[in-house]
């Protein structure tokens, strides 16, 4: 297993499968039993270092760590190091001095977890909990885990990811992980919301949602922030949802058993209608539950065993 989880692309097929299988066991070990807590990470300290607000991701990591009996410290440093005093480096040195074994970091700057992991400021394992517009590997893992529970092995499965790919760390991580797992991914977005060079990514690209939905095994809707509108990425919210929103008519274009996913938080009425979000094929709430299992698996695999620096 890798020492830091920075990018979904760092996971080999074996690693990714190990995480998903372990998450399966975590679900099995905690679902419907008297004591949901496992003693595995007793005495280990996990720091949730959140430079950006995200109650759901932080809570999910916190619960995962606590279920494994780790000591959890929430270190909330709202605003970047630029705007508020302490630098990333000083924060890292503080955490190191406190004896953190694992640091779960969320940051508005792409690559901030790389700096933490590679700069020599800390020895702790670093888990990327979302960095800027770069990646969010545990989200991709929980998405894959959720889809795998319903669809079986993902090799050959057709998965459509729709929305603001340009600014989406969820999309980047999903494309990399799903490619590793052998799924066929199609990105659908207006051309303005696709990054340059997307044609080199291990996936297909389409501007036509109706077309892409036929034959899909799952569709993942990405959150579209309304401020993109003022930056002229698209003319209006109404036009966006008409062309790229998932409504009942579009859902009916998919095979009846196809899944609907969304990383949350949703803009109901924008990228997804309430009807679809609450439909029987929507696994959006389940994604949240599964997030805890996947994060338990990641924390277990990264923190339970020998730390490479202790070995040396």
């Amino acid at each position: 297993m890798i020492r830091h989880l920075l990018s979904a692309g760092d996971l080999s097929l074996d690693d990714a499968t190990l995480v998903l299988d372990t998450a399966d066991e975590m679900a099995r070990l905690t679902e419907g039993r008297a004591v949901k807590k496992l003693p595995t990470l007793r005495g280990r300290t996990v720091v949730n270092l959140f430079f950006e607000d995200s109650t759901r991701t932080r809570t999910s990591f916190e619960l995962a760590a606590k279920r494994l009996s780790a000591d959890v410290v929430n270190f909330s440093a709202k605003g970047s190091s630029l705007s508020k005093g302490e630098s990333l480096k000083d924060t890292a040195l503080t955490l190191e001095a406190m004896g953190a074994d694992g640091v779960v970091v969320r940051h508005s700057a792409s690559g901030a977890p790389y700096r933490l992991a590679t700069s020599g400021w800390i020895n702790a394992c670093v888990v990327n909990a979302g960095d800027g517009t770069h990646e969010h590997p545990t989200q991709a893992l929980l998405d894959a885990f959720t889809m795998r529970r319903h669809l079986g092995e993902l090799a050959g499965k057709r998965i459509v990811i729709v929305g603001d790919v340009l600014h989406s760390r969820v999309a980047r991580s999903n494309v990399l992980l799903l490619a590793t797992l052998g799924a066929k991914v199609t990105l659908v977005a207006p051309p303005t919301l696709l990054p340059k060079g997307v044609d080199h990514w291990p996936c297909g690209v389409s501007y036509d949602l109706d077309d892409a939905l036929a034959g899909a095994d799952a569709v993942m809707m990405l959150r579209v922030q309304s401020e993109r509108m003022s930056a002229a990425f698209f003319p209006s919210a109404r036009e966006y949802s008409r062309r790229y929103g998932l409504d009942s008519r579009r859902q009916s274009l998919m095979p009846p058993e196809a899944l609907v996913l969304h990383p949350g938080p949703m803009n109901r009425g924008m990228e997804i209608t309430a009807e679809v979000a609450d439909s029987a094929r929507s696994v959006i709430v389940e994604q949240v539950t599964n997030g805890v299992y996947v994060r338990m698996a990641v924390l277990y695999l990264m923190l339970a065993g020998t730390n490479t620096t202790e070995e040396a």
Partner: peptide, 23 residues
Amino acid sequence: LDVTMYRDDLRLRPARALEHTEI
């Protein structure tokens, strides 16, 4: 009953894959 998560020697080796627990 997989006991991996309850072992006292976890820190001596890299984390290992879990086996099935089936009650």
